[in-house]
Simulated scan of single mutants.
Amino acid sequence: MTDLSQLRFFVTPEHDCSYLDGQQATTLFLDPAVNISAELNGQLSALGFRRSGNHLYRPQCRQCNACIPARVPVDLYRPGRTQQRIRRRNTDLQLSIGAARLDDEVFALYERYILQRHADGDMYPPSRSQFEDFLLHDLPFTRFHEFRLDGRLVAVAVTDHLPNGLSAVYTFYEPELPQRSLGRFAIQHQIAHCRELGLPHLYLGYWIRECQKMSYKGEYRPLEVLIHQKWVRI
């Protein structure tokens, strides 16, 4: 286990918040020179950090605490009726798990997703270099969970496999299949895979009550949130 007291962390200047309009944000991040292992990623995930590319970070805003780290205790999770319907709707999908990769098939799906679902976000316009910086690094614990429909790639859940759980880094999917709720189905799959691996938690990143794009995370119950450095079940 890494002695976190020996690591250096930095704080960014204030910048526009990616989630809440009109808000300013600051971010605490781990020294980028530090080699990110699965163990270190797991330790910091339990403290509310997230990974983006080769950065481990968490919000550290002076006047706002809207970004609440959230995780699912997988042994206690029970799908509600809506989630059961989503699962039944996708029983015809084929799943494979492999190393993170960038090829024409993967990038075409990512590009369609960003153009149609997140044209107002930080990842627009999509490019191969931006994809590589965000999702591809030489990290042996990162996997692509790929979902196919009759051989066609329709969703990719980028997932970090850690000693204390799985971390749902990012999911992109076919925007022309909204009736399948592929993003929500990917979370159900990751919860089930945690159980298969004997891991206790699925880390979902930040739950932001005021942000519509993040509100879906509150659907997974029970949910644990990090309040004053303690995980509290809701």
Rank of each mutant, 00 (worst) to 15 (best):
P126T: 04
F29M: 05
Q179P: 01
T171S: 12
P163C: 09
F134D: 02
A119P: 00
V34W: 07
F147D: 00
D92N: 12
F49G: 00
D31V: 10
S129F: 10
P59R: 09
A99I: 00
A99R: 11
P125H: 06
R51E: 01
G198C: 04
L197N: 02
Q23T: 05
E105I: 12
R195N: 14
L47P: 01
R62N: 09
S52C: 06
E105Y: 14
S127K: 03
D138S: 07
I187F: 14
R128Q: 14
S129T: 11
A46C: 03
H228N: 13
V34M: 04
L199M: 11
L93K: 01
Y173T: 00
A108I: 01
H118T: 02
L166S: 11
L20I: 01
Q130C: 05
F107N: 00
G198W: 06
L136N: 00
R117C: 15
T159I: 01
I86A: 12
A66K: 01
E224G: 01
T12G: 11
L199W: 11
N41W: 04
Q60K: 14
I208P: 01
L204E: 12
L162E: 10
N164V: 14
L76T: 08
P126I: 04
P73I: 13
Q43A: 08
F29Y: 15
L199Y: 09
P163Y: 13
Q6C: 09
A46Q: 09
Y170V: 02
I114K: 08
P163E: 07
P222A: 10
C194T: 03
L4S: 07
E132R: 13
A70E: 03
M214H: 08
H228Y: 10
H228M: 09
H145G: 01
V225L: 15
R128W: 12
Y170P: 01
D104T: 13
